[in-house]
Design a protein around this nucleic acid. Structure first.
Length: 213
DNA sequence: AAGAAGATCAAT
DNA sequence: TTGATCTTCTTG
C-alpha cells in the first residue's frame, strides 16, 4: 500500500534510543512507526524510568529489571495488561548517564495498512483504530510473540519471518512536531511526573491533555 | 496455594 | 461505571 514510496525516509538507529527515556519519548512524536504492512505516525507516548519512577515495571517486577539488563536499546518490550491487551514499549538505555527505561507507544495516526487495521480492530472509524496503547497493538497485530524483538536491527529478533519494515522512520525534511506535555494515564504511583507527550491538537490521541487526574 | 494489582477497552 | 480476563509477584 505505497509504503516507502513517498518522501525519503530514514530509519531511526539504535543511537536514537541510547538516550534518556523522557527525551526519547518526546522526540518520537511525529515519527512514523511501521509494523509489517501497517504504519502510523506516533502522536502520543509516555516515558518510564528505571530509577525514581514507581510506575515503571522495573519498580515492582523483577522480570522487567532482568529484561533491561539483558537487551540493548531499541528492543521491543511487550506486555499483557489487565489480562486482555498487549502494550508496546521500546527499551531505552543511555550508556553515558546510565539512564534507562521504556517509551510506551500510546497512540498513532494511521498512515498505511488501514483496511488491515480495521479488520483487526473490528472498527471502521480512523480514530478508533490506534487511539490507545491496547488499540494500536491490536491494530498492528503486536502480541507477546514480539516481546524482545529488535526495532533497530531489521530481520533480527525472536519472531521468524517478521517483516523487514518494522521500526521507526522519519522524513528528514519534516518540520518538528508541536508537542504537548501532560501526566501519564492509568497509573497509581508517581502520578505527578509529566512524562506523557502528545502531538498538539491531534485528534488521534487516547486522552486529551488536561484530562488525567 | 491463593490473592491482589495492574501502563485498558467497550458497553451500559 | 462496570465487567472481561490473566500474568506476575507476594504472602502464607
Amino acid at each position: 500500500m505505497g509504503l516507502g514510496k513517498g518522501k525519503p525516509r530514514r530509519r531511526l538507529e539504535r543511537e536514537f534510543f541510547e538516550r534518556d527515556p523522557v527525551t526519547c519519548a518526546r522526540e518520537l512524536i511525529g515519527v512514523e512507526f511501521r509494523w509489517g504492512d501497517c504504519a502510523g505516525v506516533v502522536v502520543e507516548t509516555e516515558a518510564y524510568a528505571e530509577i525514581g519512577d514507581e510506575a515503571c515495571h522495573t519498580f515492582f517486577r523483577p522480570s522487567a529489571r532482568e529484561f533491561v539488563e539483558a537487551h540493548p536499546a531499541g528492543t521491543a518490550y511487550v506486555h499483557l495488561n489487565y489480562g486482555m491487551y498487549w502494550l508496546t514499549n521500546v527499551l531505552v538505555k543511555d550508556p553515558e548517564t546510565g539512564n534507562r527505561g521504556f517509551v510506551l507507544l500510546r497512540a498513532l495516526e494511521p498512515s498505511a495498512g488501514i483496511e488491515r487495521m480495521r479488520a483487526r480492530r473490528a472498527r471502521d472509524r480512523l480514530k478508533d483504530l490506534c487511539s490507545g496503547p491496547g488499540k494500536l497493538s491490536m491494530a498492528l497485530g503486536i502480541t507477546g510473540q514480539d516481546h524482545g524483538l529488535s526495532l533497530v536491527d531489521p530481520g533480527r529478533g525472536a519472531r521468524r519471518g517478521a517483516s523487514i519494515s518494522r521500526g521507526f522512520h522519519v522524513d528528514p525534511s519534516r518540520s518538528p512536531a508541536r508537542v504537548e506535555t501532560d501526566r501519564r494515564v492509568g497509573i497509581s504511583r508517581s502520578r505527578d511526573l509529566a512524562w506523557r507527550f502528545l502531538a498538539a491538537g491531534n485528534p488521534h490521541v487516547s486522552v486529551g491533555p488536561g484530562k488525567v487526574r
